[in-house]
Structure formats: C-alpha cells, structure tokens
Design a protein around this nucleic acid. Structure first.
Length: 260
DNA sequence: ATGTCGTCTGCTAGACGA
C-alpha cells in the first residue's frame, strides 16, 4: 500500500500536474494540502475519473486539505479538537478500510508561522500543541496511523541547504523543531529518516530567487508513523522530478510504501 | 539581487500568504 503527501498549492491550478503524478505513482491514498478552494470548487469528477474518492476540508483562498483514496474510507475527524469556530482548514483524518484491517490516515497542513515574534508564530505553536494532544489520544488506539502532510518544520540542519539562511525563519526555530521532536517522542517514526536519513533531501524549493535551479531546498513534508505502521514500512520516495515540470507546485510529493 | 506564484477584491493592479 502506497500512502503519499503532496502540497499542491491550489488543486485547480495544479490539476494537470496532480493527474499526471497520480498516473505515474499510482498511490492508494494521497493527502493534499493548500487546495485553496471550498468543497464545491474541488475537481472531484476529474479525480474520480482517475480512480479516487475525495474527502475534502476546504476553505476559500487559503489552506484547505483533502484526502484521495482508491479504497473505501470514512471521515474520522475534521479539524483538530480544540480548534475555534473560525478555524483554518488544516487537518482531516480518515479511516481507510483494508481487507481485514483499517489504517488511519491524517492529512495535515501545519501553520507556516512567519514572521517570528508575531501572533502567527504563536498560532503555529498552539496548533502543534493541539496536534500533540490529539495524537496522544490516537496512539492509545494502537493501530496503524500515518500522519502525512506539510509540517512547515525543518527538523535538522541537514534538512536545508544553508542553516544560517533559515535561522530567523519560523520553520527552523528551536520551538518549532522541539514541537516536532515532542511528537516523535510519543513513539512516532519519521518515515524518511527510518529508511533513508540522508542529508539535503528536499521536498520544497521556493519559487523565488532561483531556489530550484540552485537546489536551495528544504525538507518539510513528512510522514510520521505509529509503531503499527512503522513495522510495515518498506520504502520512502521523494518525487523530486515533479518540481522541474511545467507549472509545478513549490512542493513535491513524498510517498511511503507499506506491507499492508 | 525578494529573481515567484496563486487567490481575492473589485479601479484589469495591489494586497496578502507562502
């Protein structure tokens, strides 16, 4: 089973790229971030024609997440518990039915948090705290769980081309990295690190300043696995070539293959 | 070299978020 995450930076602007990659990678479940539209504007039919059910938590203009699944699935959670009424659409969780068992897949789009020293950074840290509480609950279920998304956190210095260039950025603040580490300390596994662990394996390159041709990227798209999922992990792939295509997103897909 | 992209409002350009 292949589960993937892909920040598309507008699902409608990126539809040809998305369909091309779905055909190429043939994932079973895909977590999309920054779909940037409400549910009624989501290209459900085109994605259904490609063989996928869509589960959508949309929002006008900004944010918005969706989960695509070739297998039957049911929505388990829309938004994080504790989110206020006027919440930003950043979290969606489904239960995917497999023959004889279920896999829980959460699609998340963590707040960017820039600039630091503002309420945006406070919001980022608060959101991560709510996520921590929710994941603590989920882990008590002792089932396969995959948390896949754009975490907007650079875990290690080796996950960016130049640590000093990111020193004042919310994505590389000690508080942000500590929030990621606290999640892992609950017993989660960073899928990429478990099977690879190499330096300078990036998932995002800014549109600006020639970041892609200069390979000035960062690794911020992650799949975090419960022990029951980590035990079945076989391979992780960063679909780097997707970034070089016409009208590319600034992120590329990351997929994890499981023996279930 | 802040050198880009997508969306929205609503002065078809500028603000905003990333």
């Amino acid at each position: 089973m292949r589960i993937a995450t892909f920040n598309v930076n507008s699902v409608n602007a990126r539809l040809p790229n998305l369909l091309e990659w779905l055909a190429e990678a043939s994932p079973d479940v895909v977590c999309l971030q920054e779909i940037k539209c409400e549910e009624h504007k989501f290209p459900r039919q085109a994605i259904e024609d490609a063989g996928y059910n869509s589960f959508i938590y949309g929002q006008k203009s900004y944010n918005g997440v969706a989960i695509l699944s070739r297998l039957p699935a049911e929505v388990a959670q829309v938004g994080l518990p504790g989110d206020r009424e006027d919440v930003q659409a950043r979290y969606l969780e489904v239960e995917v039915a497999l023959p004889g068992r279920a896999v829980r897949v959460a699609c998340l789009y963590c707040p960017n948090g820039n600039p630091i020293g503002t309420e945006k950074f406070t919001y980022k840290l608060g959101w991560m705290e709510r996520l921590q509480r929710h994941v603590t609950q989920l882990l008590s279920l002792e089932e396969p769980l995959v948390l896949a998304g754009d975490w907007n956190i650079i875990p290690r210095p080796g996950d960016c081309y130049s640590p000093t260039a990111w020193m004042d950025d919310a994505l590389f603040q000690p508080e942000s990295r500590a929030a990621w580490q606290r999640l892992l300390n609950l017993g989660l596994t960073d899928a990429f690190m478990a099977v690879n662990g190499g330096e300078h394996a990036y998932t995002f390159w800014d549109y600006q300043a020639g970041a892609w041709p200069k390979d000035h990227g960062i690794r911020i798209d992650h799949l975090a696995l419960s022990p029951q999922a980590a035990d079945k992990l076989a391979e992780v792939r960063i679909w780097r070539a997707v970034r070089g295509r016409e009208k590319a997103s600034d992120h590329v897909p990351v997929s994890a293959d499981f023996d279930f």
